[in-house]
Amino acid sequence: MEKLDRLGWAAGLNLVTYGVRIGIRTNRPEILERAASVMPPGCTRAAGRVADRILSLTVGGRDSNRNVRRFHLLYSDALPLARTHDLDEVFALLEDHVKLYVAETAPRLVFVHAGAVAWRGRAIVLPGLSYSGKSTLVAALVKAGATYYSDEYAVLDARGRVHPFPCALQERTETGTRAVPPTALGGAPGARPLPVGLVAVAAYAPHVSWRPRRLSPGRGILELLAHTVPARVRPKDALGALRSAVFAAPVLKGQRGEAVETAAALLRTLDAMDD
């Protein structure tokens, strides 16, 4: 780290997101805004020079004086993260790395890999692996009138409330993924933390209907723990937040078919709980 510290950095800034302080420094001031733009949602500038993690980005490119093409280099503290000629790849890695770091270390918050929407003052949490259909189901729920919170992380506090993590929704295409801003689906993303109303573990399978079984609270917590980012580093915090989250919320598990029908069923389930 000392070697990196001794290099001449042209510009830097400190940011804070979900209580985690991120420092970014670079040899090219003009790319600082782009680096800030790939930080997690809700990121704000922070005063001071202390950071929990420092990302150092050396922009390479062609050096016409020596006819040399330098690599772009990215470090997380002293550890090399990337060495590539593709600057887009560097920013993708930067975004990915910071998101995971924040999810693992955010103080007093527990990040669960899950979609989340709000419906009539309560959150619906949809845990699942990548490619299980979470984003599709989240999009269907938002189109049906729910409020977007995230298609990536349900951020729980110690009281089990869900905080928004309104990153762009990742829509799968034939060639990869496409980032869709939440406002494109209708309405503004949610802003305030909400209690959990329902947890649905719903993996997509073709030609099936959503006929879930209700899990016991303990088994429901295990389902959520399997997708909890800081499970190993802060198990007591993780279990506490999950226990609070499912305190009054049923955990349903099953296979689901088309997202539109499943979304309608989930909203009906939540409405029926009020009757």
């Binding site: 890695l93 999810a103 693992e104 890999h113 723990l225 980012v229």
Partner: peptide, 18 residues
């Protein structure tokens, strides 16, 4: 219990090999 990376969003093969 998952390690942090296991519980996170997936990574492309190209990003992994970087």
């Amino acid at each position: 219990a998952p390690a942090a990376g296991q519980a996170a969003t997936c990574i492309t093969r190209a990003a992994c090999e970087a």
